[in-house]
Amino acid sequence: MDFSHNKHNFIKYLPTNNDKDIWKMSISGVGFQSIKPKDNYPPKGHPIGYTFNPERGRIIDEFTLVYIIKGEGKFLSVNCPEEAITKGDAFLLYPGEWHSYQPAKDIGWDEYFVVFQGEYFDKLLNKITHHENPIFHIGINDQIVKHFSEMLDCARAQSSGFQAVLAGIIMHMIGLIYSINKNQDYGSATMQKMQEACVLIRENIYDKFTPEDIAESINMSYSNFRKSFKQYTGIAPHQYMLQLKLSKIKDLLSSTEMSIQDIAMKLNFESADYFSYFFRSKTGINPLSYRKEIEKQREKAKKNSH
Rank of each mutant, 00 (worst) to 15 (best):
Y240T: 03
I205Q: 01
K245M: 05
E257K: 13
Y240H: 14
T256D: 02
K245A: 04
R226I: 01
M258K: 13
C198Q: 15
E216G: 05
L242Q: 15
L246H: 10
E257P: 00
I218Y: 08
T256V: 03
P211Y: 13
M265F: 05
Q231D: 15
D213I: 03
R226H: 13
A215C: 06
E212D: 09
Q239S: 15
E203R: 03
I260E: 04
Q261S: 11
M265N: 12
R226M: 11
R202K: 13
I235N: 07
F225G: 07
M220V: 15
N204R: 03
Q231G: 09
I263L: 05
L244N: 08
L200I: 07
I205N: 01
Q261K: 12
Q243N: 15
D251C: 01
N224M: 08
Y232K: 08
S247V: 10
I260T: 14
P237Q: 06
L253H: 03
S254V: 14
E203C: 00
Q243A: 07
H238E: 14
I218T: 03
G234K: 04
S217Q: 11
I218R: 06
L252Y: 10
N204V: 02
K245C: 05
S259K: 13
T233L: 06
D251Y: 15
I235M: 15
S254E: 15
A236M: 06
E216R: 04
N224F: 09
Y232P: 01
S217N: 11
P211Q: 11
M220C: 11
E216W: 01
I201M: 13
S254N: 10
Y206D: 06
T233M: 07
Y240R: 09
T233I: 06
L242Y: 05
A215P: 01
S255E: 15
E212T: 13
I235T: 12
A236T: 11
Y232I: 03
H238G: 12
I205W: 00
P237V: 08
A215I: 12
Y240W: 09
C198G: 09
N224R: 05
E203H: 00
R226A: 14
V199Q: 00
R202P: 00
D262V: 11
D213P: 02
D262T: 15
D207I: 08
M241A: 08
H238Y: 09
L244V: 12
I214H: 01
K250E: 15
K230M: 13
S254F: 01
N204A: 09
M265G: 01
M265E: 12
K208Q: 09
S223E: 12
N204P: 07
I263H: 03
S259W: 09
H238L: 13
P211S: 14
L253S: 05
K248L: 09
